[in-house]
Amino acid sequence: MKIHYILVLVLLTACQGQNLQIDKLKSENQILKDKIAQLKNQSIVLNKIDENTLVTLANTDVQQITSKFNGQQYQIKISYPKNYFLNKEKKYPVLYVLDAETNFGGVSYIVQRLIKDKLIPEILVVGIAYSTDYKNFYKLRSRDLTPVEDSGLRMGNKSVDPTGGAPKFSDFLEFELFPFIEKNYRIKKEDRAIYGHSYGGLYGSYALLEKSQLFNRYLLLGPSLWFKDKLLVNQVSQKNLTFGRKTKLYMASGELDLRIKDYQEEFVQLLKEKHIPKLSIESEVVENETHRTIFGVGFTNGLRFIYKK
């Protein structure tokens, strides 16, 4: 009887082990299914892009540039001023737009409206994009727009995205994109503006502190100055900043974007306390706006400030 009882225990233990193994295999199988579904979705998105079935914006152009500095192929989106092809002698200021993967249409429309009402001069808009799916876009912008590596950074519950590529991205701008635009379009070489939001605002702040030769106008919304324990905010006090030309900085964040607005105000206050010659600053915290909704009012107000005579 005792032997029989032991055999039953052995069989039960074996069954439990098999059940655990089956549960493990089911879990692994579901993970693989989810991964396959994700890859299929990415494939569909990329095929749609390749088929060029997306809406085309009037008076725009698209170019491709592969950078030798980071090996990345960039999709460069151009939005022309209305009279660009009529007045063949006129040269235009350039607004370089980060994250043009998602914002190029909205940016181009607001620019057109402000030009029509003579609130800003005619400008050429140059959008910098990657021509990829949404998930990879966020990885690539994380790489390009952050000033140093942060291997422990996690956004929500996601895995670690690449960081620290801003120096190489800056080289791409200075030594590849800017010369390409100067060669192929009628622009004012000395008049370059940058628009960036979130990580784009972080990159613009980095360029202001470390690469001031790149731009003389900065329009930065909801800047992610929290990055790397407020790295750039902490660096401002130690910086001996000088500007060789008149430079304008506009920053804005939403009242409801608590951490962002606080660090923005601290960053701006530290800059103002330095009384830097040739640097004009305008900073806003806009009532009842969030990190995302700051775009409309912030971009409009920012354009009017940075191009105000």
Rank of each mutant, 00 (worst) to 15 (best):
F104G: 06
I123W: 00
Q75A: 05
N41I: 03
Y185E: 01
P93S: 09
P223W: 05
I194T: 00
K116S: 13
L219W: 07
K248W: 03
V126Y: 03
G302T: 06
S237T: 14
P167S: 08
F172K: 01
V125S: 07
T293K: 09
F169G: 00
G222W: 04
E273G: 04
T13N: 06
Y263T: 02
K308P: 07
N41W: 11
Q30Y: 05
A166T: 10
I44V: 07
D99C: 06
G254N: 10
D61N: 14
P93Q: 01
N41H: 15
N29V: 11
P147S: 04
T132S: 07
N19K: 08
K24A: 15
I128Q: 00
G201Q: 10
Q64W: 02
G298M: 12
F104T: 06
I306H: 02
Y5C: 12
L11W: 14
G244Y: 13
Q38D: 03
N83C: 03
N288M: 08
S108A: 13
Y92I: 01
I115K: 02
G164A: 12
Y84K: 04
S43N: 08
D50E: 15
L219R: 05
L270K: 15
K261Q: 06
R292N: 08
N19C: 14
F180W: 01
D23N: 14
D23I: 08
P223C: 07
S212Y: 08
H4Q: 09
T146K: 06
E176C: 05
L270I: 14
E289R: 11
S198E: 04
V55W: 14
A129Y: 00
R292A: 13
S224D: 09
A129V: 13
I78N: 02
Y203G: 02
E122V: 11
G296A: 09
D34T: 11
L249V: 04
K248C: 03
T102M: 15
Q235C: 05
L221Y: 03
V125L: 07
G156L: 00
K274C: 11
D117S: 13
Y80V: 03
K77F: 11
Y80L: 12
Q16Y: 13
I76M: 03
Q235I: 09
Q21H: 12
K91D: 03
S280V: 10
Q64M: 06
Q21M: 14
E101V: 01
R154P: 02
E122T: 04
S159R: 03
T163F: 04
S237P: 06
Y250R: 04
D262Y: 10
P121Q: 07
Q235G: 01
K135Y: 10
F85G: 02
